[in-house]
Design a protein around this nucleic acid. Sequence first.
DNA 1: CATACGATTGACT
DNA 2: GTCAATCGTATGA
Length: 183
Amino acid sequence: MPRPSPPRSWYERDAPTVAVDLLGKLLVVENGGTRASGRIVATEAYTADDPASHSYRGPTRRNAVMFGPAGHLYVYRSYGIHWCANVVTGAEGDGQAVLIRAIEPVEALDEMFRRRGRRPLADGPGKLCQALGIDGSHDGLDLAAPDAAVRIVDDGTPPPAEPVVGPRVGISRAVELPRRWLT
DNA sequence: CATACGATTGACT
DNA sequence: GTCAATCGTATGA
């Protein structure tokens, strides 16, 4: 039997460590009676000492969840248009999170296409939130709760033996920091 | 109060 | 390759 959902302590490690361990896990969302999921294939770690991180300048109303306990979902609006989902990591008050950058669709592909209206389905942080139906109402959700609408699931698929460290994208500061991982 | 801008995406040259 | 969409947030007057 796969371990359905990692315990909170799994999320309480540093963001770069959790970012690598998230690769290969399933991101599962239950919405209006339907269950959609995808395998996480790209992540990026953000810490408070990173000028590109929302937490760099301390807690604000938007990033409050980042400074809360690990294992919660930090969802923010990007460019006034898209939603992006992060997993909060580290100790409470650290301001760490891992951005889910891409998934490979696994369950409910038709539902994803219905939500997206086009392909590709989920190869970017905004696209995967649209495909899975993640929005601002999920901000602060506890991923470690057994009955949570959004969960991280370990289905036994091993993580990549050697995750690739890729260049950071979509940001204008600290582009050189090796914090983005791909399978 | 004013305003510049973004952890993106999609359309277009 | 370039660029607009679109609006909440952060920052400074």
